[in-house]
Write a protein that binds this DNA or RNA. Structure first.
Lengths: 160, 160
DNA sequence: GTCCTAATGGAAATGGTTGTCAATATCGGT
DNA sequence: ACCGATATTGACAACCATTTCCATTAGGAC
């Protein structure tokens, strides 16, 4: 019960896990209340999320956050490499960035993003660096197409 | 010189090549004067170009075009598959789409886009369709990284 | 606790993009 | 070449995601 003596620093009181705080610190960002809340809200969903969506969600959870802060925080988290950035329908959307080399399979219909591990296919990326004058970032390769679910729903885009 | 009897239709009088008109028709778009001018202006440059840049350029060439028309035309050309779309610094930019399967090497520093032919590496893309539930569009694979020129200029972004 | 610095939030400004609608050009048939 | 139906164009206003500004507040070291 006497948790205030823990070596890992004080435990956050918002219900945010302190693993989030550790991740923020590792990325060079001080683990403020807002940053913890924004990052945790984003982890809780599989879909991409935009600034306005997170703003509404946090307010609904009893954590009203200013729009400026949401935008600033998302940019900071993305710059620190904790989030991937996508643009869809004129809105910037974010998604937690998985560690390790992987590709993104972006569905052009529903906008969903699936992660695909690179396996040994990554050699293909490495070859590019030699063949042409380009240094690829292995964490940022995107393949566009249509996901299986959208292929099976000919009508309009599934809501998700 | 009775050119008005030609089977391929009348020849454009703006200095735009009629090859442009053929391409528009093949894409299902009527080859209007504005569309020909916008597409030709885009072909004339290797860099990505945004709506405002094309607007200024066309005006400078003595072809004043309304902003609405520039936006509408770029969207139509992109939807028809004649242009590739990129978003950089909050602005949508376009680039003529080369035929055939290829990848895009997008430089995160200067924003330049190099095209890389798929060769037999394309098999990698095909395998994705089988491994996971996803149908990749072979014309829309993007690899992000830093181009050689930016690697050699440590300071700020080259102007281009 | 106290001080200093960084973070926050509300409101206004910014700027790329889209909507509206009358004027205009295009294309088929005659 | 003329004419009518249809699609395109352009000026302007509206829109909306994002950024800027700056006074207030919270975080972290001592």
């Amino acid at each position: 019960m006497g948790s205030h003596t823990a070596t890992a620093g004080r435990r956050p009181r918002d219900g945010t896990s302190d693993e989030i705080a550790v991740r923020l610190r590792a990325a060079g960002l001080s683990p403020t209340r807002r940053r913890r809340q924004v990052l945790e809200a984003l982890e809780g969903k599989r879909r991409l999320a935009g600034a306005h969506e997170l703003y509404v969600e946090l307010a609904g959870q009893g954590h009203p956050v200013g729009m400026s802060t949401v935008y600033r925080t998302l940019s900071a988290l993305a710059d620190a490499g904790l989030l991937h950035v996508f643009v869809r329908d004129g809105e910037t959307r974010y998604r937690p960035c998985a560690p390790g080399r992987h590709y993104h399979l972006v569905c052009r219909r529903c906008g969903d993003v699936h992660e695909h591990p690179a396996c040994d296919d990554g050699i293909w990326l490495d070859r590019i660096a030699v063949e042409v004058d380009f240094e690829p970032d292995p964490r940022l390769a995107e393949v566009y197409g249509v996901c299986g679910r959208c292929l099976r729903t000919p009508g309009d885009v599934p809501a998700d």
